[in-house]
């Protein structure tokens, strides 16, 4: 059985949060074997929403998921999060400066000097 879910009808134009994505799980029909998520009219999808969406897809491993009508930023977000889940994140950040101020004067002098 195929199921088509128009995301705009459930969430409006913005897919903001992880909690919102988890609502999607309840909309998926138990005996559907192919689920198409239609992104038509979606302006913005957050990273948290996208990550939770992939959690739902993993939890519904017996189904095939299709993404329809994605705009460029939505496509990029899906790709980025999907790739991020495959690999451990390499931070590679320079060690930042760490300060400890003992009193307010030390802080004031520091901030003024900048």
């Amino acid at each position: 059985m195929k199921q088509n879910i128009k995301l705009i009808d459930i969430f409006g134009t913005d897919l903001f949060s992880r909690a919102k994505a988890s609502e999607l799980n309840a909309k998926i029909i138990h005996n559907a074997n192919e689920v198409s998520l239609d992104f038509y009219g979606i302006n913005f999808m957050s990273r948290s929403f996208t990550d939770e969406l992939f959690n739902i897809i993993v939890a519904n491993g017996d189904k095939t998921f299709n993404f329809l009508n994605c705009n460029e930023t939505t496509k990029a977000m899906l790709k980025s999060v999907s790739e991020g889940r495959e690999h451990e994140r390499k931070l590679g950040l320079p060690h930042p400066k760490m300060y400890k101020f003992e009193n307010q004067k030390q802080l004031v002098d520091f901030l003024i000097a900048q």
Binding site: P96, K97, M98, Y99, K100, F101, E102, N103, Q104, L107, Q114
Partner: peptide, 12 residues
């Protein structure tokens, strides 16, 4: 070039 972390626990 401003990039730092600071602890101000002694007074704030």
């Amino acid at each position: 070039d401003i990039n730092y972390y600071a602890d101000v626990g002694k007074f704030f």
